[in-house]
Amino acid sequence: MKKMILACLLAAAPALVAAASGPAVPSFEVDLNNRAGLQRGARTFVNYCVSCHSAEFMRYARLAQDLGLTPEQVQANMVFNGGDANQVMRVAMRPKDGAAWFGQAPPDITLSARSRGADWLYAYMRSFYLDPSRPFGVNNTVFPNAAMPHVLASLQGTQELVDGHLTLTAPGALEPEEYDALVRDLVNFMVYMGEPAKLVRYGLGVKVLLFLLVFSGLAYLVKREYWRDVH
């Protein structure tokens, strides 16, 4: 029992430390039933993330099946490395090149939503700010001194840290509300990608609840009929 309690405390320690010392992060509501949003998130992911980060536990063909896309659509709009829709989301960048350019090789991010949490990812992608002291000219309030450049800067614009608050000083291609919506779709997709079976479980859960509802009604009718003869 003591070992179990210790293991639980150790597992919760990073989250407790982050809550105690890190900046507050907004609450993010995951919506895996929004198929159009997942499709938009997948589009953003392959256009802005896969150039550096791999997702080797996710296969394009599985993505097409779950998100209601055809293999042809995925092949034409998401597979840019000359492969086919049956391959996994593997980046063309070699680890040693990534380490040379960024200081460390960009990690695989298939499970980032499970390890970091959706709230953290949503806050992180909205919290880059101008910092000339950093190699890529930006820093992040959620993950200070992150090696990653702000790949969505052209969409969000430039933020600066003014009196401890993030302030948009140069607009991007999207309005702030549009950029937040794009990040929500991206994070939703990353949550799905971390555990695609969630979509199956959600669909099965609805069917099970409907079955139990019908079965309970039938069981009640049988029970009432049975006790009518007893009395």
Rank of each mutant, 00 (worst) to 15 (best):
G137M: 02
G137Y: 04
V138E: 03
V138F: 02
V138Q: 03
V138R: 02
N140S: 03
N140V: 10
N140Y: 02
T141V: 14
F143R: 08
P144H: 04
P144Q: 08
A146D: 15
A146I: 15
M148T: 14
P149A: 05
H150M: 14
H150T: 09
V151W: 11
V151D: 09
L152E: 09
L152D: 09
A153I: 13
A153K: 15
A153H: 09
Q156V: 11
T158R: 13
Q159F: 05
Q159H: 12
E160Y: 02
E160L: 04
L161S: 02
L161N: 07
L161G: 06
L161A: 05
V162T: 12
D163F: 00
G164N: 01
H165Y: 00
H165Q: 13
H165L: 01
H165G: 00
H165F: 00
L166T: 08
L166H: 03
L166E: 07
L166M: 03
T167F: 00
L168T: 11
L168A: 01
T169R: 10
T169G: 01
A170Y: 08
P171E: 10
G172H: 00
G172F: 01
G172P: 11
G172C: 04
G172W: 01
A173I: 13
L174G: 01
E175A: 09
P176E: 02
P176A: 00
E177I: 13
E178R: 07
Y179S: 04
Y179R: 07
D180Q: 15
D180E: 15
A181T: 13
A181N: 14
A181W: 06
A181D: 15
A181F: 05
L182C: 03
L182Q: 14
V183P: 08
V183H: 01
V183K: 01
V183R: 01
R184H: 07
R184S: 11
D185Q: 12
L186K: 02
L186C: 01
V187Y: 05
V187T: 08
N188H: 07
N188C: 09
N188P: 13
F189H: 09
M190H: 04
M190D: 06
V191Y: 06
Y192W: 15
Y192S: 11
Y192T: 13
Y192N: 12
G194N: 05
E195K: 12
P196R: 05
A197G: 08
K198P: 04
K198A: 12
L199K: 10
L199H: 08
V200E: 10
V200G: 00
V200C: 00
Y202S: 14
Y202F: 06
G203N: 14
L204R: 09
G205L: 05
G205W: 01
G205M: 07
G205C: 05
V206Y: 03
K207T: 13
V208R: 09
V208I: 14
V208T: 13
L209T: 09
L209N: 13
L210M: 12
L210A: 10
F211S: 01
F211W: 06
F211I: 11
L212Q: 02
L212W: 00
L212M: 04
L213A: 14
F215M: 13
S216T: 06
S216R: 04
S216L: 05
L218M: 11
A219G: 08
A219E: 10
